[in-house]
Amino acid sequence: MKKIMIIGVGGAGCNMANTFRREAKSDSIINATYVFADHRQPDIDYFQRVDDTTVYLNLYNIDLYNDLPEDFFKDVEKVYVLAGLGGHTGTAWTPVIAQFAKFSDVKYVSAIVTTPFVFEGEKHMAHALDGLSKIKELHLDLAIALNNEKLAKQYANINFANAFDYADKAVLAAIDENIKSER
């Protein structure tokens, strides 16, 4: 089985990664290594490997090229970087982490991101589009941007409380489909 690493970046990306752990049906995703990368990890200097399947990164302190162990991506064949664009952490760090994975000779690197809902404001959307253009410049193996607003229109009963959960499940479905298509 190919070793997969799922990296949740920022609050939205970490929430997506948690949804994956809860909702995943395929063994590839269930058995992936999950990396939770956020700037709100005050108890962690740079990174903390909890076990073979869970790693925490403190993006506030870390220099990816110097603070991660050389074998961080050892045996990893696929990396999925997950984030919600529009805020600061996901928008700034997603292209950096994806590029770092590419430089680390990971065979398959992708980014699956969401763009803001209308209620999040034009400033967040402009910031998200800037981040998305930086991701596209990397020429990743797969780059998917799910528009949260369009997703919300697909579901009649969606409300603020469950809107982000729908987006997370749509990202999971996209990755599941990607993994199935490669078999």
Rank of each mutant, 00 (worst) to 15 (best):
37 A>I: 03
29 I>C: 13
33 T>N: 11
32 A>L: 07
39 H>T: 11
33 T>I: 13
25 K>N: 09
27 D>L: 13
36 F>I: 06
33 T>E: 14
29 I>P: 12
53 T>Y: 10
40 R>S: 04
48 Q>Y: 09
38 D>N: 11
39 H>Y: 08
25 K>Y: 01
44 I>T: 02
32 A>S: 15
55 V>K: 00
50 V>P: 00
34 Y>H: 06
48 Q>R: 15
32 A>N: 14
42 P>Q: 05
24 A>H: 12
28 S>T: 04
45 D>K: 12
52 D>P: 00
53 T>K: 12
29 I>N: 08
50 V>A: 03
22 R>W: 09
46 Y>V: 04
49 R>C: 05
52 D>S: 13
49 R>V: 10
48 Q>H: 13
23 E>I: 02
31 N>L: 15
42 P>G: 03
44 I>F: 06
40 R>F: 05
46 Y>T: 04
31 N>M: 15
46 Y>F: 15
41 Q>G: 04
47 F>C: 11
38 D>I: 04
36 F>D: 07
33 T>V: 10
44 I>V: 14
35 V>A: 02
23 E>Q: 14
44 I>M: 01
31 N>D: 14
34 Y>P: 02
51 D>S: 09
56 Y>K: 07
25 K>C: 05
26 S>L: 14
50 V>D: 04
56 Y>M: 06
33 T>Q: 15
31 N>T: 14
38 D>E: 05
37 A>H: 03
27 D>M: 06
34 Y>D: 04
48 Q>T: 03
43 D>E: 11
45 D>Q: 11
34 Y>I: 09
42 P>F: 12
44 I>C: 03
37 A>R: 02
45 D>V: 13
45 D>N: 12
22 R>A: 08
43 D>A: 12
25 K>E: 10
49 R>T: 01
